[in-house]
Design a protein around this nucleic acid. Structure first.
Lengths: 253, 253
DNA sequence: GAGTGGTCTAGACCACCGC
DNA sequence: CGGTGGTCTAGACCACTCT
C-alpha cells in the first residue's frame, strides 16, 4: 500500500481514500489481517485522522473492515448469508429453527407494536427474547411479541423464567396453525441492549426485519429481529441467495 | 422500554443528543418542518458542530431526518413501504411492474457478476439500467445483467438505443419461463452514478437487493437493485408488510 | 502501561441552493 | 449574495484490550 498522491479534488478526499484503500484490500491484504493503526495510516496518506476515519467507516459499513476498540482494524471476511423466512426462521417455535431462547417477560409493548398486534394500548403481552448465532458469531437479536390471546393455555405460574419459559410460550404458540406472514426489512441503528448482544457499539448499523405472523385470522405474533448489517447478507427465497463480492480475497494463514 | 437511568458508565454526548432530538421530533415538530441550522443547534446544546452532526447523521440513517446541502434539515415522513418480489417486481419485463427503462448497453460485467451468471469472464452481456419511482420519488436504481444466451433472438442492430432497446431486451427475456429466484439483501453505499439517480450524495446508505432469476435450468438474468435506505422499507411476502414507527408524527400544513 | 479505536473540540474553507 | 450542509484540520482526552 504505497503512499499515494491525492491531488486536485474533483471528489472528496475521504472518497478517493476509500477507493485507494478498497483496492489495497483486494490486492495486498488477506482476510483477518491487521491494518496499520489509524494515526499511522492518516500520516501515510497525508490527511487528518478524522478524514481517514471517514473512509474507514464507509468500508466498515460495506462489510470490508472490522474495527474493535483496543484491538485494531482487520480485514473482514465476505458477509455470511443468513436465511430469512425458511425452515430455519419460520413459525417461531418450529423444531429446527436457528434461534436460541434467552428470556421472556410479560409487559406492555411500545404503542406502535400494540397497534400492529391489534391489542389494547395498555394490554401486556409476552415479550420473548431470542438470539441467533451463525458460524459461531452472534448475528441477530429478536424481540418476539406474543399477545396473551395467542397462548390462552399459558398461565402466569406455568413456567419459571428464562429459557424454559420461552419454550413454554413457543410451545403454546405453535398450537396455532400459521396462515401467512408479512415481512419488512429496513435500516436501523442498534439500541444499547441489542448492541451488547451483537457485540457491537450502540448505534451500529443493523438490518431490522419485522415479521407479522398471521393465524386464526389475527396477528398471532410480531417479531422484530435486528441483524448485524456489517457481517450479514439476508437471503430469501427458494434456494440460497446470490453471492456477489468485490475482488480477489485471500485467506490469512 | 423507558431508559431514564443513572449511568455507571458515561453515555457519549452524541448518543444522548440523539435521544433528546428524537424525542423533540416526536413532540415538537411536524413532518416536513425545517430544523434550526447546525451551527445554531450545536450552540443551543453546548456542543461542537461535529458532535451535533454525529447525532443528526444517526437520525438521518434511521429515516427520521432529511438533510440537503444548501437547503437545510427537515423532518422526514415515515418510510414508504416498497414491495419486493411481488407482481410489481417479479420477472423483469412482466407487464405492470414498477420499473422504468433507462438504457441498455452490451459490455463485459464485473468478474463477480460473470461468476454468478456462469458466463465467461470476458463475455459481454446486456446491461439494462432501470429506475423505480414510488410516491413521486426515486427509490431505486437497478442494473440488470442479461447474458446473450437468454435473449438469443436479439440481434445487435435490433433496437436503436435507450428505453426502446431496454424494452426489446425485456420482451425477449420474457419469452423464457421463470422457474425460481434467489434473493439477497445487504447494506451498501451508493456508487457515484446510483447516488445521482437517487438524488443523494455518493456514499449514502443503500439497501442492495440482488436477485438471480432462474429459467431453463440456468441463471437467466441477475438484478442488482440499490434502494435508498433512508426513505425505504422493503416489504416481502403475502399481503403488504408491517409498519412500525416511533411515535406521534404529525403532518405539516 | 502501552497501544488501539471512540469521542470531542474550535476552528476553517468549500459546494450548493434560493433569493 | 447570504445561508445551508459537506469536508477537513490538528490537536486533546477517554474507554478499552492486551501483555
Amino acid at each position: 500500500m504505497g503512499t499515494t498522491q491525492l491531488e486536485s479534488v474533483p471528489e472528496p478526499k475521504y472518497w478517493h481514500l476509500k477507493t485507494v484503500l478498497s483496492e489495497a484490500l483486494d490486492s495486498e491484504f488477506s482476510v483477518g489481517e491487521i491494518l496499520p493503526n489509524e494515526r499511522d495510516l492518516a500520516a501515510r496518506f497525508g490527511v487528518a485522522r478524522a478524514t481517514l476515519r471517514q473512509a474507514l467507516e464507509q468500508l466498515e459499513l460495506e462489510g470490508r473492515l472490522q474495527r474493535r476498540r483496543g484491538v485494531g482494524t482487520t480485514v473482514a471476511p465476505p458477509r455470511m448469508g443468513v436465511a430469512v423466512g425458511t425452515d430455519q426462521d419460520a413459525w417461531p417455535g418450529a423444531p429446527g429453527d436457528a434461534w436460541q431462547p434467552a428470556d421472556c417477560t410479560l409487559a406492555v409493548p411500545p404503542a406502535a407494536v400494540a397497534a400492529a398486534l391489534e391489542t389494547g394500548a395498555e394490554e401486556p403481552v409476552h415479550i420473548v427474547r431470542r438470539s441467533r448465532v451463525s458460524h459461531g458469531q452472534p448475528v441477530a437479536a429478536e424481540l418476539l411479541y406474543v399477545p396473551a390471546a395467542s397462548v390462552p393455555e399459558l398461565t402466569a405460574i406455568d413456567a419459571p423464567s428464562g429459557a424454559p419459559r420461552v419454550r413454554a410460550v413457543l410451545r403454546e404458540l405453535h398450537r396455532l396453525e400459521l396462515e401467512g406472514q408479512d415481512r419488512a426489512v429496513e435500516l436501523g441503528s442498534a439500541r444499547a441492549d441489542d448492541a451488547k448482544e451483537l457485540d457491537r457499539l450502540p448505534g451500529a448499523p443493523v438490518l431490522v426485519v419485522t415479521t407479522r405472523f398471521l393465524a386464526a385470522g389475527r396477528t398471532a405474533a410480531l417479531s422484530v429481529a435486528t441483524y448485524r448489517a456489517d457481517t450479514c447478507r439476508l437471503t430469501f427465497g427458494d434456494t440460497g441467495g446470490v453471492e456477489i463480492h468485490h475482488g480477489p480475497e485471500r485467506q490469512a494463514s
